[in-house]
């Protein structure tokens, strides 16, 4: 099993829909080998010394391309990056040869402990400089470029002086990274802060985007104000599907991930959502194809 992987090169993530890989679905995927373009995992869940998760991932990687979506680097933290964590990430990259590697525009490390939830950045020139240095350091360590994902957030800091979408694009431009555009996060943040979704998306250069994320969110009522909370615990909502459709109609299809992290459904439900996204992608590429004829 190890030999097969050692001999393989990074399989590119194809222009198809993929799914977040969850332990409760390992068995179904190995038995049914569903027609899914690729899988994505949080590398931090595979940083044990050994054990079944690594063997399952090795088995599934033999049949599918993989994307590593890190949640633990804490790119926006005032503290230095953790070299041991970067080395663990590098070891997983070497072992599993992912087609894509991504991390969040966020931080989780303010003291010696970790929040494990993605915390909001302050959008200033100071924090932009810092995050660019940290992205550089990750890319240098891995010897590859990574994609940076736009966050979902629930509050804004008074000190912020750069619009989020400008900060997001600029962080990638200055570090040579690509962008992971999470359309649900755009919708959640814009809705929570009263920003324009159209302006946000228009500020993101399409040629820098290497992957799209879609997920569900929940709605909390704060004294009559709706707050959207990005909990990845329900199907993608209609508004986000609509935004996704217009985005790929305007710009062309991109590898698209369906993400679930809580209330994880049976595999058949996840699979149906992945097929649904791929339907949109197919229709887009057909119309592109017709246009070129």
């Amino acid at each position: 099993m190890k030999e097969t992987l050692a001999n393989s090169v990074a399989a590119p993530v194809p222009l198809r829909a993929g799914a977040g890989l969850k332990p409760k679905h390992y068995q179904a995927i190995i038995e049914q080998r569903p027609d899914i373009g690729w899988f994505e995992v949080h590398p931090e869940n595979y940083m044990g010394r050994g054990g079944p998760p690594l063997s399952y991932l090795e088995r599934i990687r033999m049949d599918y391309p993989l994307s590593l979506h890190s949640v633990g680097t804490s790119l926006g933290s005032h503290l230095p990056l953790d070299v041991a964590h970067l080395n663990n990430l590098k070891a997983l990259v070497e072992r599993f040869q992912p087609g894509l590697i991504s991390e969040h525009l966020s931080w989780s490390h303010g003291y010696e402990w970790y929040t494990h939830d993605l915390m909001p950045l302050i959008y200033t020139e100071e924090s932009l400089k810092l995050i660019v240095e940290h992205i550089d350091q990750v890319q240098e360590c891995l010897g590859r470029t990574i994609l940076i994902e736009n966050p979902s957030s629930y509050l804004q800091f008074k000190q912020s002086e750069i619009p989020e979408q400008v900060f997001y694009v600029e962080a990638a431009k200055r570090s040579g990274a690509g962008l992971l555009l999470d359309i649900n996060n755009v919708f959640v943040s814009c809705s929570n802060h009263g920003w324009s979704v159209e302006e946000y998306i228009a500020a993101v250069p399409h040629e820098m985007v290497g992957e799209i994320h879609l997920a569900g969110h929940s709605i909390q009522d704060l004294q009559g104000t709706r707050l959207r909370v990005d909990d990845h615990g329900s199907p993608v909502c209609a508004e986000v599907w609509q935004l996704y459709q217009s985005y790929i109609n305007a710009n062309g299809a991109l590898p698209t991930l369906i993400e679930w992290d809580s209330n994880i459904p049976e595999f058949t439900e996840l699979y149906a959502e992945v097929r649904f996204a791929e339907e949109f992608m197919n229709r887009t590429s057909e119309s592109c194809h017709e246009a070129t004829l």
Partner: peptide, 22 residues
């Protein structure tokens, strides 16, 4: 430090709650 819309406490509490729940 949070932009004032009268809901700063509630907005911060989403993070505070997520931290203990996750």
């Amino acid at each position: 430090e949070i932009v004032d819309d009268g809901l700063q406490l509630e907005r911060f509490n989403v993070y505070r709650n997520n931290f203990v729940v996750l």
